[in-house]
Amino acid sequence: MATVTLTVNGKSVTATVEPRTLLVQLLREQLALTGTHVGCDTSQCGACVVHVNGDSVKSCTMLAVQANGAQVTTIEGLATGDKLHPMQEAFRENHGLQCGFCTPGMVMSAVDFAKHHKSPTEQQIREWLEGNICRCTGYHNIVKAIKAGTEAMGRTA
């Protein structure tokens, strides 16, 4: 067993894990942060995307022990109280989600995208989403949402 200490959504946490524990397992099973999902076992679907030290990563493809000392943000850490993050609000306003399962990873990936793009094209958004699979929306409204969310983040930044 190993002990890890990390900051999750602004709070310091310490946990004891097997070395084989994935970051997503630590989040879901030990920290009860079940917003981060697991949709595949080959690192492709992106339902598990969280931010580690500010970068979007797949928490199913990172060991919990590798996150020792890291700053982790999950979907639960995005809103401020009851006020949705601009990207969350854009997904709601543009109907960028249906079943909601891919949504946390999709939103976390989108927030990372927005940090690197100020006025994105549809093509840039579609290419960025290579690592996020949605089976419900056909991506149409996700693309719209990310465009709107990115622009809104640019306004508030």
């Binding site: 690192s43 995307v49 990563v57 493809t61 960025w128």
Partner: peptide, 9 residues
């Protein structure tokens, strides 16, 4: 290479 999350790791 891969996708943005793969490129970040």
């Amino acid at each position: 290479i891969g996708d943005p999350q793969v490129r970040n790791r």
